[in-house]
């Protein structure tokens, strides 16, 4: 009984950590620009697929991973520079539609530049499962959880302890005042897109040894990360993490105790419930309009 429950819990925490990383990417870009970046899932795909193909070209795996993160970051920069910045005066809805277009473009590009097959990566440190109270956890799951925790702590430090992190928060709250104190708002936006892309790519690399990857994985992982961000409250970093973990665990428990056919259904039932009954999420700001 306990073993079974723990088994589902471990699997849920692992995918929850991935959703949290993707959700954090949504939160970062939303905070800086109020844009919901539906190309977020493509950064996840670029991380995994990029690593697979760079490694296949003979580059050692850790370096290939790093290069893939850089590749995704550059694509993130390009998205901000070429699509978002050029249309600065467009409404937020227009910008969101642009990100949907960009995601289709990136997916198409990946299909051509890479291929349509499924690929996987070797686990970072073997596949010998570890027994805990009758359940097992793979070393790769520990990598996922460990790296997620490290990233969250680094982001926490960045936003609460450095002036640059606070400048991002200030820009999010009041772009006009931020410009008046000399903050380069365009540079902040660029940085947020780059950072989100890097986060997504890391998530994509971490999950590939567990679930494998192909050019289309970004669609579902992006949507799950979006669910995490909405459930936690858009724009709240802590909310995205909590939302991701809740979503991952709920999915795993549902798949285990009800039916694995319903795994994805559970995520979307949760997001619909959140949107109907709690539109500002668990930790989001209450939506107040300034008059």
């Amino acid at each position: 009984m306990l073993g079974e429950f723990l088994q589902y819990l471990f699997s849920g925490l692992t995918s929850g950590a991935i959703y949290a990383l993707v959700g954090l990417g949504f939160a970062l870009i939303y905070n800086a620009s109020h844009v919901i970046n539906f190309a977020q899932g493509e950064f996840v795909m670029l991380g995994g697929m990029g690593t697979v193909f760079i490694a296949a070209a003979g580059v050692p795996l850790p370096l290939a991973g790093l290069l893939a993160v850089l590749l995704a970051t550059v694509v993130g920069f390009a998205l901000e520079k070429l699509a978002v910045e050029q249309t600065r005066n467009a409404s937020v809805v227009t910008l969101i539609i642009i990100t949907i277009g960009a995601s289709i473009f990136v997916r198409g590009g990946a299909q051509v530049a890479f291929d349509k097959q499924f690929h996987t990566l070797p686990s970072f440190s073997g596949d010998t499962p570890i027994n805990i109270l009758g359940a097992t956890i793979t070393p790769q799951s520990l990598w996922v959880l460990g790296i997620t925790v490290v990233i969250v702590l680094l982001l926490q430090y960045f936003f609460t302890r450095t002036l640059l992190g606070k400048a991002i928060l200030a820009t999010s709250h009041n772009p006009m005042a931020a410009r008046l104190v000399g903050i380069n708002v365009n540079a902040i936006l660029l940085m947020s897109f780059g950072l989100s892309a890097a986060l997504g790519a890391v998530a994509g690399i971490l999950i590939t040894p567990i679930t494998s990857t192909n050019y289309e994985v970004g669609i579902m992982l992006g949507l799950k990360g979006f669910c995490a961000a909405i459930l936690g409250g858009l724009g709240s970093g802590f909310g995205a993490i909590a939302g991701g973990v809740i979503l991952g665990v709920a999915e795993a428990l549902g798949a285990g105790y009800i039916s694995s056919e319903y795994k994805d259904v559970i995520a979307f039932v949760i997001i619909l419930a959140a949107l109907f009954f709690m539109p500002s999420g668990l930790f989001g700001k209450r939506g107040t309009d300034r008059v």
Partner: peptide, 11 residues
Amino acid sequence: VPEGRQVFGPL
């Protein structure tokens, strides 16, 4: 010093 103060409220 902008009109309406425009301080960064959450900070």
